[in-house]
C-alpha cells in the first residue's frame, strides 16, 4: 500500500492514451443507437407525406389537412384575393406573394403560428391567432405581431391539376 507511482516512460503513457481513446470512441459509438432510437421510427417516417385531393375545394374556401401531425391550410384563392395579396410585400417579414406559392390559386401553408405554435383561425381576410393576437393575410404573411415570421410553406408538389402531395418537393 501507498506505493509511489513509478513512471514507465512514454511507451506506457502512449498505450494507456491509445486505449482510452479507443474505449472512449466505443462508448460514444454505443450512444448512437440509443440516441437514434428516439428519432421517428420507420412507420412514422412512412407517413411523412400526405396526399390531398383538391377537387372539392371551391374558390375562396379553405381546407385543413394533417401533415406529420401538423395542420396545413390549403386555401383556394379567388382572383380578388390574389390581387390584394400581390399588391404588397407584407409588413413584418416582407416577401412577395409569388415566392410563397407554386400556383397563385393555391396557397399551402403550415397552420402553426410562428410566435408560440398555436393554430390561427381563418377570420375575414387572412388568419388571426387567438393565443396572442397575431394576424396573417391571405398569403400567410404576418401583418400584426407578436409573431415574427410568416406562416411556413411546407414542401409540396402538384401530382395533377387537382392532386397535391405535401412533404415531397
Amino acid at each position: 500500500m501507498g506505493n509511489e507511482m513509478v513512471s514507465d516512460g512514454d511507451r506506457r503513457d502512449f498505450l494507456i492514451k491509445l486505449t482510452s481513446v479507443v474505449g472512449g470512441a466505443g462508448v460514444a459509438a454505443t450512444c448512437v443507437p440509443f440516441v437514434a432510437s428516439m428519432n421517428p421510427s420507420s412507420d412514422v417516417l412512412a407517413k411523412a407525406e400526405t396526399e390531398v385531393d383538391l377537387a372539392d375545394i371551391t374558390p375562396g374556401a379553405m381546407r385543413t389537412v394533417a401533415w406529420q401531425g401538423k395542420p396545413v391550410f390549403i386555401l383556394r384563392r379567388t382572383p380578388e384575393q390574389i390581387q390584394s395579396v400581390s399588391a404588397s410585400n407584407g409588413v413584418l417579414d416582407p416577401q412577395p406573394d409569388n415566392a410563397r406559392v407554386q400556383n397563385p390559386e393555391w396557397l399551402v401553408v403550415i397552420g402553426v403560428c410562428t410566435h408560440m405554435g398555436c393554430v390561427p383561425n381563418k377570420e375575414g381576410p387572412g388568419w388571426t391567432c387567438h393565443c396572442h393576437g397575431s394576424q396573417y393575410d391571405d398569403s400567410g404573411r404576418v401583418v400584426h405581431g407578436p409573431a415574427p415570421k410568416n406562416l411556413e410553406v411546407p414542401p409540396y408538389k402538384f401530382l395533377a391539376d387537382n392532386k397535391l402531395v405535401i412533404g415531397r418537393a
Binding site: 440509443f34 437514434a36 432510437s37 421510427s41 420507420s42 412514422v44
Partner: peptide, 30 residues
C-alpha cells in the same frame, strides 16, 4: 429507451414489441 416505445397494455403489448423490432431505429438492438 425500450420503455419509450413499449406499451403496457394487453391489447398492444405484443404489437409494440414487434414495432420495436421492426420500425424503431436500432430497436432490435436495444
Amino acid at each position: 429507451f425500450l420503455a419509450m416505445h413499449y406499451k403496457a397494455d394487453a391489447a398492444t403489448a405484443f404489437d409494440s414489441i414487434q414495432h420495436i423490432m421492426r420500425d424503431v431505429n436500432y430497436g432490435w438492438l436495444l
